[in-house]
Design a protein around this nucleic acid. Structure first.
Lengths: 183, 183
DNA sequence: CTACTATATGGACCGACGGTCAACTTGTCG
DNA sequence: CGACAAGTTGACCGTCGGTCCATATAGTAG
């Protein structure tokens, strides 16, 4: 069990990080500043989250949970039940939507990651996409194709299209890419 | 004109960086170490290349020149003359080959870049790919599609497939992706 | 309420980093 | 050769992520 004060601080730190990220440039959000903004000592931040990557991952995870649940047991087409191509399209729509709503957080996590291909979030997304591709187009190299598709979704691109408000172009483009691959 | 000693130092620095990158982990290649390995003062490195990103860019540029020349005025299918779909396939083959032969350098540049979508190398590659897509498949969002394809080629993925010696899977996968899109 | 313990806390401290700068040296050219 | 532009240098700077341990406190058993 986590002590009550520890839980309170964890929430305060996550909230402070989020707030700093939304109002400042990524390079200005240091661990010291996070601690100060959360009103705790720097040691506490590291005690709770291990390191910068851990903090950013926790932040991303809090945003991703909902999507994971919807994918695993929500209604089609995102959840189980719909044909693979439709599930794929729905998944990428959802990811783009999620990512554009949280660009700053995603960028922070991306930058703090040492091992982008092996973090739990990427792994679960890759497993999902790869599985769907394998069942919809057995002739494809599903594992690799999933990597290629997910690789397209980096935060720089998100920012570019978010800045001009054209996030629909992103989803549309990905949709037609998926469609073309599965044809 | 660049003075003789300056030119000599420039070459020494580039050579030292390359050597350090190939024999050490990326995180161990600091500007101090580069200077020491090149046998020059730290100030010289910054005087020549501006900052870390500039140094890494110069290193990448030296590897990329040949490809650029081949694309602009070499023989088909890489150079002008061949149909757009074949030029595209040839281009991605060449980029994968180039990138796998220089993973460490590409990774170092990628990590040091503040602005991945706006550096000169990315810009020229994007212009090339985007132009070919536009002429081969006018119905596509060429600009975006080029970003998506190029986004797939990050150094983490390179490393993954290089480690197991399966770089051909990368080229094959990209080829079929391009083929599917232009079909 | 008290005593005890496991857990949490904070901030001084650390080594390393990228980057600057002013004093100094050296190549170049008339 | 002399003079000046160009290049060189490494001590120095502020900041960063991360550690450590003396101190404080929540939770619990008696």
């Amino acid at each position: 069990m986590e002590r009550a004060d520890a839980a309170r601080n964890r929430r305060a730190i996550l909230r402070a990080t989020e707030e700093l990220l939304s109002s400042h440039d990524l390079s200005e959000v240091s661990m010291d500043r996070v601690a100060a903004a959360a009103g705790v000592g720097k040691g506490t931040v590291f005690h709770r989250f291990g390191n910068r990557e851990g903090l950013m991952r926790a932040l991303v995870e809090s945003r991703v949970e909902e999507l994971s649940a919807a994918v695993e047991s929500g209604p089609p087409p995102l959840g189980p039940g719909a044909p693979a191509p439709e599930r794929l399209a729905a998944f990428f729509d959802a990811v783009v939507e999620l990512a554009t709503r949280n660009v700053k957080v995603m960028a922070a996590f991306e930058q703090a990651s040492t091992d982008r291909l092996n973090n739990p979030i990427y792994l679960s997304w890759h497993a999902h996409v790869s599985g769907l591709i394998a069942s919809a187009a057995p002739a494809l190299d599903a594992d690799l194709t999933a990597h290629l598709l997910l690789g397209s979704l980096h935060s720089d691109l998100m920012r570019r299209f978010l800045r001009t408000g054209e996030t629909h172009r992103l989803s549309d483009g990905l949709r037609s890419m998926v469609a073309a691959l599965l044809r």
